[in-house]
Design a protein around this nucleic acid. Sequence first.
DNA 1: ACCATATGAGACATTCGCGTCTCATGACGG
DNA 2: CCGTCATGAGACGCGAATGTCTCATATGGT
Lengths: 192, 192
Amino acid sequence: MSHMVYTCLMPLDRDHVLRRAAALLTRKSTATMDEVARSAGISRATLHRHFAGRDALVRALESLGIEECEAALDTARLDEGPASDAVRRLVREIEPAAGLLAFLYGENQLFEGEGQNEGWARLDARIAALFRRGQESGEFRIDLTPAWLTEALYGLVASGAWAVLDGRVATKDFQFMITELLLGGALRREEP
Amino acid sequence: MSHMVYTCLMPLDRDHVLRRAAALLTRKSTATMDEVARSAGISRATLHRHFAGRDALVRALESLGIEECEAALDTARLDEGPASDAVRRLVREIEPAAGLLAFLYGENQLFEGEGQNEGWARLDARIAALFRRGQESGEFRIDLTPAWLTEALYGLVASGAWAVLDGRVATKDFQFMITELLLGGALRREEP
DNA sequence: ACCATATGAGACATTCGCGTCTCATGACGG
DNA sequence: CCGTCATGAGACGCGAATGTCTCATATGGT
């Protein structure tokens, strides 16, 4: 029997395939199942053995993205310390998943219909809660709703991921550009 | 003969079709040619008479989006007055095209390959010049590059359009949310 | 050495959207 | 009243991608 193969190699392989798929689909969202398979170094047949179909693959990517985001939120400890620092930690931790997130963000077909993953709602709630905490503590302005700030965070992360992918922004500037714009905006701060 | 039909009705019709196509494709970027036609109230045959194929349709939408953006930039008079006011005017003028822009922004296949419309480069240059002007006048901070601010503007406009489409943000708040976040950020301003 | 299993390669039918075609209809101008 | 032209409806073939299948191979454990 090969139960050890099941419990040790398989998940690694599946994860590897998912990550390559994410990387490819981020650049070319219309990539073929065959292209995805080649990109992961396996054959189309094997890809179909792991994922029932393209839909199942995208769903798996969605779950992976949600998992990574939730892990990032956990690591970022959103409810500790100043809210602005928590936002910085959040962006830093979420950066590795930015590409995948950008792909899923553009896959708007996921968000229509009733079958949408409730993980997004959980993420939205946690991030919005962070912004609300910052508002209640007086750190953040109250005339921008937490829902919009959450939306804007997603949008900026996706924009940043694409800009990095296209070479318009350096990878090392990713976190700085997003957090500084999101928190401080483009205007010069008055010297205190 | 019906030359008057050509010069009067046709352009209106074509424009109408393009706008309906933009509205539909913004929500469902994988919409069928048949769905686009139905959405515009015409048959698939007529749609194919106006646009050689799906690719031509998307290219026409791209040109329309660029035209509307350039018109918005013209109306906004980016080189007059304080740069922050110019940004506010820019967002206000660009709002009607936000949905179309969001669709094109997600159509990343347009930006790969050499056949990309040079109109985007013109728009990028004009918007980046605005941010640079703001930096040189001391209004904007200099640690966020004009290229990134331009990218972020696109991303926020797209995010805003989608948020409005999904009912997460009120239409009347669109301009305020974007300009305030882009210019001022989420942090509370110190009272001067 | 033997067997089980995952894999790769390839064939196959199916589905789906696209692009083109024809024909009938209706509107509009001469 | 008649001709022209755009349109709608529908049929048709094509190509691409998908999903399923079989078979040969290699790897790894017994």
